[in-house]
Computed example of a mutant assay.
Amino acid sequence: MTLGIIIITMLLLTGYNQFLNIKQNSKINCFLNKNSIENTLKNWNNIIQIAAHQYKVDEKLIKSIIYAESSGNPYAKSKSNAIGLMQIKPSSAGAEVYRLNGKTGQPSIKALYNPKINIDIGTAYISFLQKKLISIKNKDVMRYATIVSYVNGNSALLKTFSKNRKEAINIINTMTTKSFCAHIKKNIQRCKLFVI
């Protein structure tokens, strides 16, 4: 469900909501609109802007992930130990960002409850994923690939296309945005609430 929410939120924030075909009576109609998203995240706008600028990541993507992952709750914690606004797992995304910054170990749970640290690490991780997917030519497909990688992991995304990374990217580069989303919807059963 998180993947679908992120994609729907992204479409709403970017003004592409005409691509959505949301089923009537869906829970999603109750809480997803641009104003409610912006209002929920207004406390974090300055931090998001700074991180977006520092890591060259679209603010709307950061906001979409925060909204879908934690509904803007800095104290959110998942059953899988993902922490804070961007639901950072200390031992995976947290450790990866530490490694990229030349640090050892991983961020503490206490640190990840700090919105500034959480958004910084989450945005750094998005930037890292975008660099891993830089050879995807279609910008919309790359955005969706980044979202899927954030939620499920980069290797999980690529393995739905091929065990060989280069071959997987080549396959992705032959796809339209619609065919990519259809493939993800079919192969990563996490986004049943949206139709593109």
Score class of each variant (00 low, 15 high):
Tyr75Cys: 09
Tyr113Asn: 15
Ala82His: 12
Met86Leu: 03
Ala82Lys: 10
Ser78Trp: 08
Asn73Met: 11
Asn114Phe: 07
Ile88Ser: 01
Pro115Ala: 12
Ile117Phe: 14
Asn73Leu: 07
Thr123Glu: 09
Gly122Cys: 03
Tyr113His: 13
Tyr98Pro: 04
Ser108Val: 09
Met86Tyr: 08
Ile121Pro: 04
Ser91Pro: 04
Ser108Arg: 03
Ile119Asn: 01
Ile83Ser: 06
Ala111Ile: 12
Thr123Asn: 05
Pro115Leu: 08
Ile121Asp: 02
Asn81Met: 12
Ser78Asp: 11
Asn73Ile: 12
Asp120Asn: 10
Met86His: 01
Lys89Cys: 06
Leu112Pro: 05
Asn81Thr: 08
Pro74Cys: 07
Thr123Lys: 00
Ile109Thr: 15
Pro115Trp: 06
Gly84Thr: 02
Asn118Gly: 09
Leu85Pro: 00
Ser92Gln: 11
Ile83Val: 13
Lys110Pro: 09
Lys89Ala: 11
Ile83Pro: 02
Lys77Trp: 07
Asn81Tyr: 06
Asn118Arg: 06
Ile121Ala: 10
Gln87Thr: 09
Ile119Gly: 03
Lys116Trp: 02
Pro107Tyr: 14
Thr104Val: 14
Ser91Gly: 14
Asn81Lys: 14
Tyr113Arg: 12
Asn118Met: 06
Ala82Glu: 13
Ser92Pro: 09
Ile121Val: 11
Ser91His: 07
Gly105Gln: 09
Ser108Glu: 14
Met86Arg: 00
Leu100Val: 02
Arg99Cys: 07
Lys77Asp: 07
Lys110Glu: 15
Ile83Glu: 00
Ser91Gln: 14
Asn118Thr: 08
Ser78Arg: 02
Leu112Ser: 13
Lys103Ala: 13
Ala93Val: 05
Thr123Phe: 00
Asn73Pro: 08
Gly94Asn: 11
Ala76Ile: 09
Gln87Leu: 04
Ala95Glu: 14
Pro90Leu: 10
Met86Asn: 00
Gly84His: 01
Gly94Phe: 02
Leu85Tyr: 04
Ala93Lys: 06
Asn114Lys: 12
Tyr113Lys: 11
